[in-house]
Amino acid sequence: MRPILLHGHTRSLTKVKYNRDGDLLFTVSKDAKPNVWFAHNGERLGSYDGHNGAVWDLDVSYDSKRLLTASADNTCRLWGVESGKELFRWNTRTAVRQVAFAQGDRMALYVTDATMGQPSTIWVVAIEEDLENQSDEFERKIIINGPKATVASWGDLNKTIYTGHEDGTITIWDAETGEKIKSVKSHDSVISDMQWAPDYGYFITASKDHTAKIFDAKTLRVMKTYTTQRPVNSAALSPIRPHIALGGGQEAMEVTQIGGAKQGKFETRFFHLPFEEEIGRVKGHFGPINTLAFAPDGRSFASGAEDGFVRIHYFDDDYFEFNYEEESLTA
């Protein structure tokens, strides 16, 4: 099927994310203007105006009413999804890299960058139902000594926080005490993405070391490894099929004029999850893919790239018909 191209950003995409119902797609980029789109036809619903710098991350609440954005303008902001109005703002000393609602949407975390003498820090804040009571005080602050955190998210039941770091380590923190529970270094380079399985048993990471890996959430044991020839910027788990999608490509600055898109390999690559075998590729972007997301129903996916485009691809019927014989053979 023809992809839907979303033109709306003037700079490279940093994150795309569906709401829980899958009817809306939220996108943020380095152009300071988060957008929301109808996922089924790519029509833009609106934008969230106010940031003064690149927006690095976003999260949307379970009920699709509130949106959190993390920006390089030293703010983390809460928006009304429908109104497009800024509801609240946390001012920080450095750029905000990551943001995530906790389960229940009554808490959130954001991560500030290690620059200007500030350490990389995880801030846990309460989110009030009634904005009158909303405070800019933090509930908890976890200072990360060592390589800075590049990705962060909540573990199941808000008991833990998982961070991925610049040097390829993954750390589990106790969300209540702020203590480090476990840390492993299974990647050789920056971890650029971390996405959870729906039941929080495992998650997938993408790394500049050209691989994506699936980790068991409890033990941080590497369950699967997917190797490519280019840095991987994003990795997503299909909610309905045993497949994963990887996006990445040669760093824009390293791509030569002659080689172009061919050499850069700006493709979304699909792998069979248990077999670790490649099953397909989707081309189209002419810059590295920075972010990928499966629609919650698993029938489409969105990709955002360095070229400033977001593409929504609906799978053809034969994608759903495709099956390894072995999947039905049980010994």
Partner: peptide, 9 residues
């Protein structure tokens, strides 16, 4: 090999 992987997973 695939059957083994599939069952394990």
């Amino acid at each position: 090999r695939r059957i083994k992987l599939w069952n394990e997973w």
